[in-house]
């Protein structure tokens, strides 16, 4: 029999969020990047428009990444003392669409870097590269609340993507975004209900922020509970297409820490001979994690390994080919 192609009728679509700002828009980026906006499930071009391809950002730190495995550090050893040069290498050599700066050194248990120093580092990175930036604190809420304001100010007008607003601690990041026209990462702990509620809380502070929120559903690595995130992402995407506007924000997956703290990514082959060559296995573990998230509907990935980035970008190229009937 001849087959009639089935297309789902959706009422809604994913919100489109613009990241970065050019000179005309009050920033200094050479271009902006749009994420989201799709009217179909991941890569099903035949049923609805998918205007923007998923974006791959690479993570850099404001200090030497001692805890990264040697095989990964190798790629950055000439630049990891200098965040500007590091960012530039990610963009120029490794093809990163965006750069995510993590102010790891602000951790009170590490260098306890001051807000002013973080702001100065951000400025250096802004000068070194022209792509839109993502910014993370050190991960300790008390300290991050004191640095995100000054960092937001230092990048005023650049429409940075600021991380992270959480249910118990969203006001400082959301305020920093409101004050200086940035966007916000709303992070929920593998919990779709909190993901939805957090968007509402942020929007209550400022309605225009609704179109500047990116959801981080919290990523678990491949082999370590990724299926929970996958299903939350699928539910959120399907919900958005069915008209749930409070879950319709684009989604970001910061897979760096989760992937690279797992044995499959960092163990040398001589410690687990049954798992094969490490030089291939490490990027493959990160790339397959990213592949699964792309199938779940992720719009923006933050990654570390240059070879994994290459694999994922090629995969996105293939998936963005029109498959209409």
């Amino acid at each position: 029999m001849a087959v009639d192609i089935l297309k789902e009728k959706y009422r809604g679509q994913v919100r489109e969020v613009v990241l970065g700002a050019t000179k005309d828009e009050g920033g200094t980026r050479s271009h902006t990047i749009k994420v989201g906006g799709e009217k179909a499930l991941p890569f099903l071009h035949f049923e609805g428009e998918i205007p923007n391809r998923p974006v791959v950002a690479m993570e850099i730190w404001d200090m030497v990444p001692d805890e990264w495995p040697e095989s990964l550090k190798e790629y950055f050893k000439d630049v990891y003392n200098d965040p500007g040069a590091w960012a530039k290498k990610c963009v120029d050599e490794y093809g990163a669409d965006m750069v995510a700066v993590r102010f790891k050194s602000a951790d009170p248990d590490l260098n306890d870097t001051s807000a002013d120093e973080c702001a100065a580092t951000l400025k250096k990175v802004l000068e070194a590269v022209s792509v839109p930036l993502i910014v993370y604190g050190c991960g300790k809420a008390e300290k991050d609340n004191t640095i995100m304001g000054p960092i937001g100010e230092a990048g005023a007008g650049e429409n940075l993507l600021l991380g992270v607003a959480e249910q118990e601690n969203y006001k400082s990041v959301a305020s920093a975004a409101m004050a200086n026209k940035h966007s916000v990462i709303a992070q929920s702990p593998i919990d779709i209900n909190i993901a939805k509620q957090l968007n509402i809380l942020i929007a209550e502070m400022s309605t225009p922020l609704l179109d500047r929120i990116v959801i981080d559903p919290t990523i678990a690595a491949l082999g370590y509970g990724i299926e929970y995130c996958y299903s939350i992402m699928e539910r959120a995407r399907f919900g958005a297409l069915q008209g749930d506007k409070m879950l319709a924000m684009p989604m970001i997956g910061n897979i760096c820490h989760e992937v690279w703290s797992k044995k499959e990514a960092y163990l040398p082959a001589d410690e687990e001979p049954g798992w094969g060559d490490q030089a291939e296995r490490s990027p493959a573990w990160e790339a397959v994690t990213a592949m699964a998230l792309l199938q779940g509907g992720i719009n923006l990935l933050i990654m570390r390994h240059p070879e994994a980035v290459k694999m994922v970008k090629n995969n996105i190229d293939d998936l963005m080919k029109d498959n209409s009937y």
Binding site: L222, G223, W275, G276, D277, Q278, R281, A284, M291, A292
Partner: peptide
């Protein structure tokens, strides 16, 4: 092996 491990884990 290094490629099939992540695939089969997924």
């Amino acid at each position: 092996k290094e490629h099939l491990l992540p695939l089969l884990s997924w």
